[in-house]
Amino acid sequence: MTRFATKAAALTAVVFPLVGVGLAGAQTQAVDEKTGPVSFANIASVRIGAEGQRGGALITETQRSPLLPGQSKLGTDRVTVPKDDGERATFGGHYQIDLGRYSASQNPYPPGVASRDHNVVAALQATTVPTAVAETNYALRDVWQGAAKPVDNTVLVLEGAKSAVDCTGPAKLTTTTSLARLWVRQADGTLGIVPVPGGTAGLQLTNLKLGPPGDITNADKATTVSDLKLTRVATFDQLIRQDGWRGGDFTAVAGWRVEITTHVKDAQGAALQDVRTNIVLGGVSCSVPKGFVAKAGNQSGGTTASQAAVPTQVPAGYLGAAAPATDGDGSRVPLGVGLLFGGVFFAAV
């Protein structure tokens, strides 16, 4: 019998003070770190295992709004998930999520989808209103299929995806989750455009040529298929997040949720097991406490705070005893939170 198993390990990041630039170059009173207005933004994270089960997870760098007006933006070096062998080992080596920018020889997108940098920002406006946005083009590839060109392994493309939240006040929480075009691998092998689901409606696809996220003994590409469901993130609990990513008395969320159930079969078509994979693309949230009132001032809207950037980042999971203090340029300050970082392994017994 073949079995899919996971194991998880808890990692801890080091605590560092937050530094901010206040109005007119002077520091202003910071919002409360534990209960004050806050926003978070994450470009893509993955969890293996059924709903409610503790499976392996890969949670990429999460941006958190600073305690003083400013913003935190994801660096452009994050162009794929996983980005290295360490992340790849976390949930198997078959899936690749491309995040917008690509080289001409490694283009995973259909014709007409231009290379671009993502825009992932968590901000605290000058009015202390928290906002967040995540926007780019996403492509989900299954490299297990073994096609020579990256685009021929692509199963799903979210072109012009944008998720955004704005918490102006307890009675004014705004969310946006939109797409320009949605591409899906068709039965004839081509990538075709399908209608974007509206509102709370989802898109459900069956019998896709999509395998499991990692190796399973005796699994066969010709007989293994997956069912896929694409919906908008509707609740805070649907986000794949670190413990440090908190909500509040009033919370708005947005993002795209991809739920995959892979029916793994052998060469004779006999069922081996079902593997469930959950992916959240562009997960964002903002929260304000009871009684919150925005300060007077010009609200620029969106995520462009009027102050200088104050990078504040919950780092991605990694194997080690403690997080590094900063990146090489000293621009990213990790928060003191526990990270869920599950190593996935596939075993035969």
Rank of each mutant, 00 (worst) to 15 (best):
N119C: 01
A271P: 07
G317W: 00
L205P: 01
L272G: 05
Q125R: 07
P311S: 11
A180D: 14
P324V: 13
K221W: 02
L173I: 10
I279D: 01
G283D: 10
G317C: 10
S226T: 02
A148S: 14
Q63K: 07
M1F: 12
P37H: 00
R101N: 07
A30D: 02
D329R: 12
V15L: 06
T6A: 12
K149S: 10
A8P: 07
G20Y: 12
A114H: 05
G330R: 05
E135V: 08
D188M: 09
Y318A: 14
T90N: 13
V344L: 15
R257I: 02
L208Y: 03
L173A: 10
A252G: 03
F4V: 14
G214D: 09
G86Y: 05
A222M: 03
T251M: 11
T28P: 02
N137I: 02
G112P: 07
K290W: 03
A122V: 09
V264D: 14
I43R: 02
L239Q: 09
Y95E: 01
S306R: 08
V333F: 05
G247T: 01
G202A: 15
A8L: 13
V165Q: 11
E51Q: 14
V38D: 02
S65V: 02
E87Y: 04
T277F: 09
G214T: 08
A134R: 03
